[in-house]
């Protein structure tokens, strides 16, 4: 049975000009211990989706416009505030792009891990467990480092501390929203390896958000590709990357320069990602698509099964 189940989730954003559907009919499921990637360009709705899983979006400006989220068989929208607070940082933990923004600069990192333990695992709120967690995230000399303040650590170290804090509650699902985007390539590689090791060792599921297709290749079992608030393709990572079916996935893969392919003209996607107030009618990608037909601008194509768990939102590639 799935650990996380999202069914037909829609989220709206309101501003002075109007109300826009920034996440539209999103469905996905993650099995216990699975690594799942959510991928898409800036503004496609990845972070909003991640935050909505435990109802972390502020309302206003956001509102839930339908759908269901189930975590460990609990209906998240039906939970009372107390249970919801226990879920956040408990069964579901988050790490973000910028650890500095989430760590308290005036407290030692050990103290911050301790706080998390007190909240979610009071029986283990002791120094021994703190050291164990720092060891788990491969911080050298953890007995000494737990006395450090955040400013004494490098970006890569801080992200490790964030992961240690996220692990304190022994979550079933770790949501990592671009955890390596701000880090150097070699450090990024170390953090991704660490997440992979922890996932295997602890059996927790990881939802990794990224805009880098290479990260999906190295990390994910399954992937959902988002464009303008909608999932356009969904399936096993190796299949989606090796044989993309949606024209957007295909275009993304062709636009990215690949190491070892020498000098050549890149296949750029014309135009740019539309902002929410000007999502085109019909298929949201039709204005930039090279397969487009007149019918593409009329109605929003549904996600259509393409075999082996694959779903594709393109009636030209995968006819109903």
């Amino acid at each position: 049975m799935a650990l996380l189940e999202v069914n037909d989730l829609s989220i709206e954003l309101s501003d002075r000009q109007g109300t826009y559907r920034i996440v539209d009919g999103l469905s996905l499921d993650i099995a216990p211990g699975e690594s799942f990637c959510l991928i898409g360009e800036s503004g496609s709705g990845k972070s909003v989706t991640a935050l909505s899983l435990t109802r972390l979006l502020p309302s206003p400006p956001f509102s839930y416009a339908g759908g269901e989220v189930r975590i460990d068989n609990q209906d998240v929208f039906g939970l009372d505030d107390r249970t919801l607070r226990r879920l956040r940082g408990g069964k579901v933990s988050y790490i973000f792009q910028d650890p500095v923004a989430y760590l308290n600069p005036v407290h030692r990192v050990g103290t911050q891990i301790l706080e998390m333990l007190k909240l979610h695992r009071p029986e283990k709120a002791n120094q021994e467990r703190i050291v164990e967690l720092l060891k788990l995230v491969e911080i050298p000399a953890p007995e000494l480092r737990l006395k450090d303040y955040p400013h004494q650590m490098s970006g890569g170290m801080l992200q490790r501390v964030m992961i240690a804090i996220a692990l304190a509650s022994e979550p079933l699902l770790l949501v990592a929203d671009e955890p390596t985007t701000a880090l150097d390539v070699t450090v990024q590689e170390q953090i991704l390896r660490l997440l992979e090791k922890l996932r295997r060792q602890l059996g927790m599921a990881v939802l990794l958000i990224s805009h880098n297709l290479g990260v999906v290749h190295d990390f994910a079992d399954r992937v959902a590709v988002m464009y303008a608030g909608q999932v356009v393709e969904y399936g096993k990572a190796t299949e989606v990357l090796n044989a993309p079916q949606h024209p957007y996935t295909e275009a993304l893969l062709e636009a990215a320069p690949r190491i070892g392919s020498g000098q050549h003209r890149l296949q750029a996607i014309p135009g740019q990602v539309p902002p929410p107030h000007s999502f085109p009618s019909g298929c949201r990608f039709h204005t930039r698509c090279n397969l487009t037909e007149p019918s593409c601008s009329i109605s929003v194509p549904p996600l259509h099964p393409a075999g082996d768990g694959r779903m594709v939102r393109c009636p030209i590639r995968v006819p109903s």
């Binding site: 990215a256 890149l266 296949q267 750029a268 996607i269």
Partner: peptide
């Protein structure tokens, strides 16, 4: 820049 735009700018520079 996002990859789709990155490709446009790189092509332009070339």
């Amino acid at each position: 820049l996002d990859v789709s735009v990155q490709a446009q700018v790189i092509n332009l520079l070339r």
